[in-house]
Design a protein around this nucleic acid. Sequence first.
DNA 1: TTGATACATCGACAACCGTCGATACGTTGA
DNA 2: TCAACGTATCGACGGTTGTCGATGTATCAA
Lengths: 111, 111
Amino acid sequence: MKLVGVITEECCPQVLRAPLGAAEAEEMAAALGVIADPARLRLLSLLATAEDREACVCDLTEPLGLSQPTVSHHLRVLAEAGLVEREQRGRWAFFRLVPERLAILREALVP
Amino acid sequence: MKLVGVITEECCPQVLRAPLGAAEAEEMAAALGVIADPARLRLLSLLATAEDREACVCDLTEPLGLSQPTVSHHLRVLAEAGLVEREQRGRWAFFRLVPERLAILREALVP
DNA sequence: TTGATACATCGACAACCGTCGATACGTTGA
DNA sequence: TCAACGTATCGACGGTTGTCGATGTATCAA
C-alpha cells in the first residue's frame, strides 16, 4: 500500500509502453489499489467537489455512511499514498486533494 | 470484479466532477481493482508490447513466473472486465488488448 | 480543572483474493 | 483410437483488507 520508488519520481512507469518488471508492477498495483476502493473513491470525489476544496473528517463520515474510525483509516491510506494532504486546525483535521498525484496514475495508463 | 452498468455506457463516471454515489463508487472500485494487481498489470503490459499485439497463455506463463492456472485465472478476470479479448485458434487461446477499455478507466480520473 | 468535542489508534473478526497442485476438457497429429 | 499438448476449472490454503466498538489523545470552552 505504500507509494515509493519509481512512482515518486517525476516521470512515471508506463504500463503500455514497455514490459513492466516485477517491482514496477508491484508498485503500480499498490498505487492503484489505494483508489480501488469505493469508500476512498467517494472520499476523493467529496474532496474534489467540496466547498473550499477541503473537508474535515466530521463532514465526511455521514455522507459515506461509515464509522468515524473507518473514515479516518481510509483518509490515512490516501494520505500515505500522497493523494490527499492533511492539515490540523484546532481540533479539526482538514483534508485536501493532491490532483497531481492522481494525474500520475492516470498517465501511467496512456497507450 | 464485474464491469457492468454505468461503466458499460458510452460516457463514464467522473470521480472528480460530482460526488460519487455508493453504487457508482462500488463499480469504479471493482473496475480499478481488476488492474490493481501486479500480475494483471504485467499481462496488459506484455500484450501491449507483444509482437503481433497478441499472445497465448503459454507465452505469458514464463515471463510472469506464475503457474499456468494462475495466468489463466488472471486472463479470465481481465477478459470479464473487457480489458482483453480472447480468441481460440486451434489448441491455443490468443489474447489481445482492448485499449478503449483502459481509456474509460483513465478518463474517469480526469479533473 | 472538568467536560465535551474531533480525531487517531488498537484489537478482532469476517470476507475476499492470489496462488498452487490436481484434474478435466478440447484439439491435434499419429 | 490413442497420446500429447494447451487451457480451463476445481478445491484448498494463507495472507490481506475493510469494518467496527472500545479506547487513547489532543484541543477548546466553561
